[in-house]
Design a protein around this nucleic acid. Structure first.
Lengths: 269, 269
DNA sequence: GAGAATTTGTTCGTATGTATG
DNA sequence: CCATACATACGAACAAATTCT
């Protein structure tokens, strides 16, 4: 209809500016409107015009400002959400929670191996468990207040038919899980699933750090490996939506039995 | 309007069945329609009613079958895409490319550190470069046909003001990049960006493997570190959308200077 | 504490653009 | 060139969560 011409005009007029300076000219490829919007917003966030920690203007306002429909604006915001720049909450608004969508964020991993800990087909065999209170270095590494009580497990993880364990696991969980966990040995489920079941809280985020270490004698013995060999040490912290730490685990994986593989896919396409 | 009542009725009638058997009753929480749809489709994919490798029915057909708008159906499909179950292509259709949305896929990473290689604020200083033909072990590790020509770079990567390098990099790229790369030293850009610029091909996927190693003497010397220390060895393979290998890199990172951190977020929320 | 206002989430409808075969 | 199938974009309305009065 005639609204089409009006639309086109509006698009030219809409306040979408490319983020920084001259910029590559993608006009030949006709960037979709919502991507241009996302790019614009990203720029505003990066340079602080939309300050970190603050709320985005309401969607209807932003849509009006850009001269686009709310639907299109929401597509742009959804993209920023996927990139981890903002997080929206019903009834509240959209918070800016990251300032840099550095090129590193362009890729998103979605790999089966991402959480090897919960790989199906492995048995977790507990050989030690106890109740502990977080003190000193543990408390600080857990980023929790000292004195909080945890239930800790130590055990080996092995693939079903394997003769040697694949990893040594050390796990800290809510004390409420003690009974459940002691009752099942070996454990075939991902432990964080059990945490969700027992505590009723959903795990929304996992922070994972990978470091190289050299196997010390006691660890090597448990793993039936040679002391002095290289290994990966993976630390995982499991958080509830509100940011509360629900589980912490350390995993030691000898080099000859495990490599950590991820596939990163481009999400800009 | 009156269409509202009709809508509600339709919803009850729509062929959305929960995936498996009795199923948890979420009716009290009123699952959004598009999630129910996604769940239903996921079930059909898992049990083979929608066979792996085949195309989904066209969106308008599916929408009609479920008795929902195309928009809602697309929301469901978008979810399946994020989970990696299907992949859509304009003019062709939506292909089913995975049968299991196993729990491992629940989390998706989006981290600044994901591609430390390209972290801004690092300099890559080349100290060796050459043209090579892939043979033997290299060719096999590259998963490329032997005899293909590559341009290889060796260099150190350091943070801007640091006195010691952070990593030793070994990179294999298309020979067309030789001139460009030799002309710039140090390199501040991510190399895979340059690959995209020069070859005109987009990098759509990166396969990344992390292993622990022990620093040997020559490597330790270059890095100004101690031989025998633990380090991470990260291998990255960069692929075009069609699956052609465009770049391969090895990176060695001493434990005391680097830890690999990722944040995995729940995408089911 | 009830209720109004605000803000994001869901869902419909419709039209047009663009890539593929 | 045409038909097909996904992609983008408009508009409108109601639902649900939160906050403020």
């Amino acid at each position: 209809m005639s609204s089409d011409a009006a639309r086109k005009r509006k698009r030219r007029e809409s306040g979408v500016e490319t983020a920084t300076g001259p910029v590559q000219d993608n006009s030949f490829a006709r960037t979709p409107l919502y991507l241009a919007l996302a790019h614009d917003l990203e720029g505003r966030i990066r340079d602080g015009r939309l300050p970190l920690g603050s709320l985005l203007p309401p969607e209807p306002d932003l849509a009006a400002e850009f001269g686009v429909s709310r639907h299109t604006l929401r597509q742009a915001i959804q993209r920023l959400r996927r990139l981890g720049l903002v997080s929206a909450k019903k009834g509240v608004g959209t918070t800016i929670c990251e300032a840099d969508a550095s090129s590193a964020r362009r890729f998103v991993s979605a790999s089966r191996a991402d959480l090897s800990e919960q790989a199906e087909g492995t048995d977790f065999t507990i050989f030690e468990s106890a109740s502990v209170r977080a003190r000193g270095s543990l408390a600080s590494e857990l980023a929790c207040r000292p004195g909080r009580e945890w239930f800790t497990l130590k055990g080996t993880r092995s693939e079903i038919g394997a003769d040697r364990p694949m990893a040594l696991d050390e796990v800290y969980v809510d004390p409420r899980l003690a009974e459940t966990l002691k009752a099942m040995n070996p454990i075939r489920q991902a432990i964080f699933r059990l945490v969700e079941e027992v505590t009723g809280e959903r795990i929304a985020e996992i922070r994972q750090t990978i470091r190289p270490v050299i196997l010390d004698r006691p660890t090597a013995e448990v793993l039936n490996a040679q002391a002095g060999e290289p290994a990966l040490k993976i630390t995982r912290a499991y958080f509830s939506p509100s940011g509360r730490l629900l589980e912490l685990s350390y995993q030691t994986l000898p080099a000859d039995r495990f490599a950590y593989t991820t596939v990163l896919r481009d999400v800009t396409a």
